[in-house]
Amino acid sequence: TSQSKEFDPLGPLPPGWEKRTDSNGRVYFVNHNTRITQWEDPRSQGQLNE
């Protein structure tokens, strides 16, 4: 049996976020709370300043 979700070392996405793949196979992220899409992983944002 194959799992639909692959193991992700960053852990789960924040509430309201979804990881998607476009027609070219590039991963992007959707924030359903604000209806915004972005290329950057929301889990890695904010760690750059620490």
Score class of each variant (00 low, 15 high):
Glu40Lys: 13
Gly25Phe: 05
Glu6Gly: 07
Gly25Thr: 07
Arg43Asp: 01
Gln3Asn: 15
Gln38Leu: 03
Phe7Cys: 06
Ser23Leu: 07
Val30Lys: 02
Leu13Met: 12
Phe7Thr: 13
Leu48Gln: 15
Ser23Met: 06
Arg26Glu: 15
Ile36Val: 10
Ser4Lys: 14
Asn31Asp: 07
Pro9Cys: 03
Arg20Ile: 09
Val27Lys: 10
Glu50Ala: 14
Arg20Glu: 08
Gln3Thr: 11
Gly25Met: 08
Asn24Met: 08
Thr37Gln: 09
Tyr28Ala: 05
Arg43Leu: 01
Gln47Trp: 14
Thr21Met: 06
Leu10Gly: 00
Arg35His: 14
Asp22Trp: 04
Gly16Asp: 11
Gln38Ile: 01
Phe7Arg: 11
Leu48Pro: 12
Tyr28Ser: 06
Gln38Glu: 02
Asn33Leu: 00
Pro14Trp: 03
Gly46Tyr: 09
Asn31Tyr: 02
Glu6Trp: 02
Gln45Pro: 13
Pro15Ser: 11
Gln3Cys: 11
Phe29Pro: 01
Ser2Lys: 14
Asn49Ala: 11
Gln3Glu: 13
Gln47Val: 13
Gln3Ser: 11
Val30Tyr: 15
Gly25Ala: 09
Thr34His: 10
Asp22Gln: 07
Thr21Phe: 03
Gln45Ala: 06
Gly46Gln: 06
Gln3Pro: 06
Gln38Val: 05
Pro14Gln: 13
Thr37Ser: 13
Arg20Tyr: 10
Glu6His: 02
Asn31Arg: 01
Thr21Pro: 06
Trp39Tyr: 14
Asn24Phe: 10
Phe29His: 04
Ser4Tyr: 10
Gly46Val: 12
Asn31Lys: 03
Arg20His: 08
Glu6Ala: 05
Asp8Trp: 03
Pro14Thr: 04
Tyr28Ile: 00
Gln45Tyr: 03
Arg35Pro: 03
Asn49Met: 05
Gly25Ser: 10
Glu18Pro: 00
His32Asn: 00
Thr34Glu: 09
Lys5His: 13
His32Asp: 14
Leu13Cys: 00
Phe29Arg: 01
Asp22Ser: 15
Lys19Asn: 15
Gln38Gly: 02
Asn24Arg: 09
Trp39Asn: 02
Tyr28Phe: 08
Arg26Gly: 13
Ser23Thr: 08
Arg43Pro: 03
Tyr28Val: 06
Asn24Trp: 07
Gln47Ile: 09
Phe29Asn: 01
Asp8Gln: 11
Tyr28Cys: 08
Pro15Ile: 05
Ser44Leu: 13
Gln38Lys: 02
Arg35Leu: 06
Asp8Gly: 08
Asn49Cys: 06
Pro12His: 09
Asn49Leu: 11
Gln3Ala: 07
Ser44Ile: 08
Pro14Phe: 04
Phe7Asn: 09
Ser44Phe: 09
Pro42Arg: 00
Glu6Ser: 14
Gln47Glu: 12
Thr37Phe: 03
Lys19Ile: 08
Thr37Asp: 04
Glu6Tyr: 12
Trp39Gln: 07
Ser23Ile: 04
Ser23Gly: 12
Pro9Asp: 02
Thr1Asn: 08
Trp17Lys: 01
Gln38Met: 07
Tyr28Gly: 06
